[in-house]
């Protein structure tokens, strides 16, 4: 990993993979990121999502879309 954005993408995907067995993985991933990431980190990855969100897995992408809607 190098660079903050690359790390954030990795983190989001890692969270989603580990919450895949939750009853609602998308909601759980979104809630985890909302609860533990600071505003700048969230803003960075949402900006990346707005630019296409390359590298994001389907669950983490869906979770970030949900976060964006809630913002």
């Amino acid at each position: 990993m190098s660079g903050s954005l690359e790390r954030l993408i990795y983190m989001a995907n890692q969270i989603a993979r580990n919450l895949a067995t939750d009853a609602d993985p998308v909601a759980a991933t979104a809630q985890h990121i909302r609860s533990f990431w600071d505003p700048r980190m969230r803003a960075m990855i949402l900006a990346h999502l707005a630019e296409g969100g390359s590298g994001l897995d389907p669950t983490s992408r869906a979770a970030l879309l949900r976060l964006r809607e809630a913002a």
Binding site: S4, R7, S35, F36, W37, D38, P39, R40, M41
Partner: peptide
């Protein structure tokens, strides 16, 4: 009301200049 940065994220943000 917003969560802050963890240590590794502080260091990332520092490298980013923030």
């Amino acid at each position: 009301p917003e969560p802050g940065l963890r240590i590794p994220n502080m260091l990332d943000a520092a490298v980013d200049g923030a």
